[in-house]
């Protein structure tokens, strides 16, 4: 809590202003404003098609907005590619995509950032990597029984943790997590929740979480933003809202859409 209160007056780590994006006739984003503070976990919810995935793709440099500004630490940046975003410390983590199943935990942690000797020959300093990997995982309190184990032998939660650890070890300051607790048992979820909270509280990592599951969001996040029709329509700290309020919000949105659909249908019928 205190981390956010302290940060409340300061410049957000990530801020967007009036981000818009359309795909042909479809308007995906109609001006999205968000503020992510240092060490904050912000949840993004919304129906399918509300625009959160498009928004996240823009923030991680995969797509470019039609208009609007992205500010990192108060300075405007232009993210032309995923690499660009990464250079600014923004990294999306997809646990089912990030790791090489046949490589060990420590090799995955050092993927393409290997510690080598002999210069161009690229001789792997296995011992150094192992030690550094173990030290880093201990540091962020991720316990993996054996860092020599191949990634495919790990559980989904452990893989997610390793993927997150790799991103933060490579100095990611803003993490984008897509349904980080999806298809996880209670124990697995606890591992990820602890990791996310620890990274945010003790390392100042700021985290954007997309999730459909409100329970997960309440467990993970400090604050939630609701996306509706390409805009952020609701912005509350989790202690100031409730599962019921969010659910009611989404249901009323659903009703409104159904009504609008009926009206459109009615229009079509009456106007030949």
């Amino acid at each position: 809590m205190t981390a956010i209160d302290e940060a409340a007056g300061t410049t957000p780590v990530l801020q967007t202003e009036g981000i818009t994006k359309r795909f042909g006739a479809v308007v995906a984003l109609r001006g999205v404003d968000i503020q992510l503070r240092s060490g904050e976990v912000l949840g993004l919810v919304g129906d399918n098609g509300a625009g959160k995935s498009t928004f996240v793709k823009i923030v991680c440099g995969f797509q470019r907005p039609d208009s609007g500004r992205i500010l990192i630490d108060g300075r405007e940046v232009h993210l032309h590619s995923v690499k660009d975003a990464r250079a600014h410390g923004i990294e999306a983590v997809y646990h089912d995509l990030a790791l090489v199943p046949q490589l060990s935990v420590y090799q995955n942690l050092f993927l393409n950032r290997e510690v080598t000797t002999l210069g161009r020959l690229g001789w792997l300093s296995t011992r150094k990597m192992r030690a550094q990997a173990q030290a880093y995982l201990d540091d962020i309190k991720v316990s993996i029984p054996n860092i020599e184990a191949e990634a495919e032998t790990l559980s989904g939660g452990q893989r997610q943790a390793i993927a997150v650890a790799r991103a933060t070890r490579q100095n990611a300051k803003i993490l984008l997590l897509d349904e980080p607790l999806a298809a996880m048992g209670a124990k697995e979820s606890a591992l990820i929740i602890d990791l996310v909270k620890d990274l945010a509280a003790n390392r100042g990592v700021s985290i954007l979480v997309i999730d459909h599951n409100y329970t997960h969001l309440f467990e993970l996040c400090d604050r939630v933003n609701v996306f509706q029709q390409g805009r952020v329509t609701f912005d509350r700290r989790v202690e100031d809202t409730s599962l019921e309020e969010l659910t009611e919000l989404m249901v009323s949105e659903y009703r409104r859409q159904v009504m609008a659909g009926h009206r459109e249908l009615g229009d079509e019928v009456t106007a030949p």
Partner: peptide, 12 residues
């Protein structure tokens, strides 16, 4: 590991 963690599209 909990079995539910096998995600679709996994290569293993």
């Amino acid at each position: 590991a909990s079995q539910a963690t096998l995600t679709p599209g996994e290569t293993s």
